[in-house]
Structures are given as structure tokens and as C-alpha cells.
């Protein structure tokens, strides 16, 4: 019975959330947000959502923590004290009470007879073997039955990187005192100068990339897929940038290349749909790719769209990092190699 484990994790989760609310040190709060994501990922695993757990761990504890820290390096480390006001607290308690009332008529946790377990989902489970031959049911629902949602999801991350690039694009006209990073790298150790960091990372980064590729292509069988792979590979590249400096990284992986990459990723996904249209099927109907063996056609389609997601997400992660890092530290200071906070 894993009941007590869940209870303990939930208690930790509550404590973490309260700590985030109360901490005035924003760096500490950012780390706590990362821990919050990790704890959530553990809970997701307990609730059988391994794909969600994987993604939450990679995104919440990885990417968003890096983004928070980059932002804090540019803005402020501490939150200012403010007098306490009652109105928000009352509003929140009232809303919470309404929500709790609303749950009273819900099917209980884990009830196998709940409507969601008897209406649509059984078809997905039955269809996995019959129509797809792909063991990971989440992957095939994601890429086929709800492939259009996943296309939308790829576009969401594309939209975010376009937005971030528009807002933080290389435009630094007025570098007044307010624009200097609060944390300057002078005081920080130069990561590049540490032989251990350098050597270890040179060994680790290829392994991370390799793992990312494994996640990309193993997504049919176990947890993982294009999005998780993109985040992991993106993180490896970002790690390289943190250690060897932004401009070194940009020489290896220039922005225009990534911009082309992200566009091609989205187009690969959408184009797979267009191809199925042209071959006489409905949009994103992969069965038409192989008229003799629809299973094989679907497999091919899923491989293509997952590839599109992987490419788009990898490029998006790196481009978002470029925008923050390029803005974050005066270019030459960052190139000293002390960018990682």
C-alpha cells in the first residue's frame, strides 16, 4: 500500500508551496519552485503518470529554474516587505471553499467506475495493440488521436520563443545603471577555470545528448518522446554555454541555425499532416502513409511528428536561453565564463 508515501509527499509539497509564498529571498524561492516540481514529479510517478513525471522533472526542475535564475540575475534578489492585507486571503479562502464544495459530488480517487475510465479511454487502451503496435499508450494517443493538440502544443512553444526573441532580441540601446545585472560575474568563480568542471562537463554533455536521443527514439516503448528529448538536449547545450561562455556556444550553434531549426520542426509536424491530406486522408491521418499496412503507416507518422517536436523544442529551449543570457550579462562579462549563477 503506497498510501502513506503519497500523504508524506503531499505534506512536503504543501510545505514547499508555503515556503515559496513566505520566502523573501527570491533565489531561495526559485530553488524551492524547482523542488516543488521534483516532488510533483514523484507524485505523478506514484499516480502512474510516468510521462508527465518525466516532463515535469525536466521542465519544472530544469528549464524553468534556469530561467528564474537568469531573470533574477538581471532583476532583484530579494522581495521587498509589504504590509499584510486581508482581501486576497479572504478571496482565496472563499474560492477554495467553493472548489471543495464542487468536489463533493465527484467520483472518488482511483474509482475504476468513474466516467472517464469507462467512456473514451478504454478505446485508447484497446486500440494501442490493435491499431498501433506501440507499447506506450500515452505516446500514441498524444501523436495520433490527439495529434492536433500536440501540433498546437508545438506551436505554443514556438510562439513563446518568438515572443521572447521579440521582447529580448538583441536591442540594448540604453545600458543605464538600472540595466546592469545585480549579480556581476566578477565576484563569481570562473567556471571555465575549474579543470574539474571543464573535464567532467566535457564527459557528461555528450552523454546527456545521447540520453536525449534515446528518449526521442525510445518514446514508443517507454516514457519519453519528442518534447522530453528536446528539453534534455536543449539542457545539455545550455550547460555547455554556462561553462564555456555564450559566445563560444553561439559560434558552435549560431542563432540563425536555431531559428531555421525551430521553423523546420513546426513545419515537419504540420507538413506530415499536409502529406496525409495530399495522400487522400484526413489531416494527420497517418494510416494513409502505408496503404498495405496501416499500423506501419501510423508508426511512420508518429516518428515524423515526434521528430518535429524534438527539433522544435531543442531549438526553442536554446533560443530562449540565448535571449535571456544575451540580455543578462554584459556580453564581455559573460564571455569570461562566469555566467552560471
Amino acid at each position: 500500500m503506497d498510501f502513506p508515501v503519497e500523504v508524506i509527499l503531499f505534506l512536503f509539497l504543501l510545505a514547499t508551496a508555503l515556503t515559496v509564498a513566505l520566502l523573501e529571498d527570491l533565489f531561495a524561492a526559485a530553488m524551492m519552485t524547482g523542488i516543488f516540481s521534483l516532488l510533483s514529479a514523484c507524485l505523478f510517478t506514484l499516480m502512474d503518470a510516468v510521462d508527465v513525471a518525466f516532463t515535469e522533472a525536466a521542465v519544472g526542475a530544469g528549464v524553468s529554474t534556469v530561467l528564474f535564475l537568469s531573470t533574477l540575475a538581471l532583476t532583484a534578489q530579494r522581495e521587498k516587505q509589504h504590509p499584510f492585507t486581508w482581501f486576497p486571503l479572504l478571496l482565496v479562502i472563499l474560492t477554495g471553499a467553493c472548489l471543495v464544495t464542487g468536489t463533493l459530488d465527484m467520483p472518488h480517487y482511483g474509482d475504476p467506475k468513474a466516467p472517464i475510465h469507462v467512456h473514451v479511454a478504454p478505446e485508447y487502451i484497446a486500440g494501442a495493440e490493435r491499431d498501433f503496435g506501440i507499447p506506450n499508450i500515452v505516446t500514441n494517443v498524444l501523436a495520433s488521436y490527439r495529434g492536433y493538440d500536440t501540433f498546437g502544443e508545438t506551436v505554443v512553444i514556438f510562439t513563446a520563443s518568438v515572443g521572447v526573441m521579440l521582447l529580448l532580441g538583441h536591442r540594448r540601446r540604453r545600458p543605464g545603471p538600472a540595466h546592469r545585472p545585480t549579480i556581476t560575474p566578477e565576484g563569481a568563480a570562473r567556471m571555465r577555470d575549474f579543470a574539474i568542471v571543464r573535464v567532467v562537463s566535457m564527459g557528461v554533455i555528450p552523454l546527456i545528448v545521447l540520453f536525449g536521443l534515446y528518449v526521442q527514439f525510445h518514446g514508443d516503448f517507454g516514457p519519453g518522446g519528442g518534447f522530453q528529448a528536446g528539453v534534455i538536449i536543449g539542457a545539455a547545450v545550455i550547460l555547455y554555454g554556462l561553462i564555456f561562455g555564450l559566445s563560444t556556444l553561439q559560434r558552435v550553434v549560431p542563432s540563425p541555425l536555431l531559428e531555421t531549426g525551430i521553423a523546420l520542426g513546426v513545419l515537419l509536424y504540420g507538413g506530415t499532416g499536409v502529406a496525409s491530406l495530399l495522400m487522400g486522408g484526413h489531416y494527420l491521418d497517418y494510416a494513409v502513409f502505408d496503404s498495405d499496412d496501416p499500423k506501419h503507416g501510423r508508426h511512420l507518422g508518429i516518428l515524423l511528428v515526434e521528430g518535429g517536436v524534438g527539433i522544435a523544442v531543442t531549438c526553442a529551449m536554446i533560443l530562449i536561453f540565448y535571449s535571456f543570457a544575451g540580455r543578462a550579462l554584459a556580453r564581455e562579462a559573460f564571455d569570461e565564463g562566469g555566467g552560471g549563477q
Binding site: I116, A121, I137, D149, E153, V156, I157, V164, I320
Partner: peptide, 21 residues
């Protein structure tokens, strides 16, 4: 049930996109 997992993968992506922006 796999469907909530599928939906929430999308929601996580939306979350990180919103955070970045």
C-alpha cells in the same frame, strides 16, 4: 487512464511557455 496524461503533457508545455514569456 492515459488521456489525462496526454492532456497534461500539453499543459506542462503551456506552463513553461508562459513562464518564459
Amino acid at each position: 487512464n492515459p488521456l489525462p496524461h496526454v492532456l497534461m503533457l500539453t499543459a506542462i508545455v503551456v506552463g513553461i511557455a508562459t513562464t518564459a514569456l
